[in-house]
């Protein structure tokens, strides 16, 4: 379970996050929806413990990510906005390295590595250096290394960004599987169909504030629109007027 409580963050005079409060439950997929610059990535960076909020608290399974970032990180697998790889290492070595950094070793580690390689269908390239991999293959490797410690909470920042159809489907399947396993999945996106199809709960963020929360139907009902996209535009637009 991931809880955001009145998070605020400014960069100089720009207030990137004004007030973000929401909860992502276990066994559910929570979508973070918002236009570019709404504060999604900043919120997730605060969750990761790499950025300190100006105010508020973030908790992962009850562990404060600000006070105990390592404890929160151990309970969380994250695919950040930028997820570069090491060109001279193979997918297997990438996953193993992150496993070791989580304190895994020996047979257990090797089993997890093998499991992830077959789950993400990386078998054919597992022993090859990642230099020259396609965008889809790179994303899969980055995903695999983020999941090696079997985290109860999975956070994905725009995971399908720039992926082709096949890779996008693989990522969506993975998200569903994680939910079935009872994990808490939080992911950000600005692709409406994806959010609508996958999410049990949608958090709409605009101008650093949570402007609406609920299922796709609830958001449509609330705004009186027929599609999620129209509902989203109307919600974001309202916030824009308020800010101006």
């Amino acid at each position: 379970m991931i809880e955001f409580e009145r998070i605020e963050k400014s960069f100089g005079r720009v207030q990137a996050v004004r007030e973000v409060t929401f909860t992502a439950r276990d066994g559910a997929v929570t979508g973070l929806l918002g236009p570019n610059g709404a504060g999604k990535t900043t919120s997730l960076r605060i969750l990761s413990g790499l950025m300190k909020p100006d105010a508020g608290a973030v908790r992962v399974d009850g562990v404060d990510a600000v006070a105990d970032p390592l404890g929160a990180q151990a309970r969380m697998g994250m695919l950040p906005d930028s997820h570069g790889l090491y060109p001279r290492l193979t997918p297997r070595e990438h996953i193993r390295y992150f496993g070791e950094l989580h304190g895994l070793k020996g047979k257990e580690l090797e089993q997890r590595v093998d499991g992830l390689i077959s789950a993400l269908s990386l078998d054919a390239v597992a022993g090859r250096r990642v230099d020259g991999f396609s965008h889809g293959e790179r994303t899969k490797v980055a995903l695999a290394r983020a999941l090696v410690h079997r985290p109860g909470n999975v956070v994905l920042d725009e995971p399908t960004n720039g992926l082709d159809v096949m890779s996008t489907r693989a990522v969506r399947d993975l998200i569903r599987r994680l939910r079935e396993e009872g994990r808490c999945v939080l992911f950000s996106s600005h692709i409406m169909q994806e959010v609508s199809a996958l999410c049990d709960s949608i958090i709409v963020i605009a101008h650093g504030r949570v402007v609406a929360e609920g299922t796709s139907e609830e958001l449509r009902e609330k705004t009186g629109k027929t599609t999620l996209e129209d509902a989203f535009v109307s919600l974001v637009g309202l916030e824009e007027e308020r800010t101006l």
Partner: peptide, 13 residues
């Protein structure tokens, strides 16, 4: 190569 942020996400001092 943007591998720094993922590295820092691991629970390692």
């Amino acid at each position: 190569r943007a591998s720094f942020e993922p590295l820092l996400l691991n629970p390692v001092p």
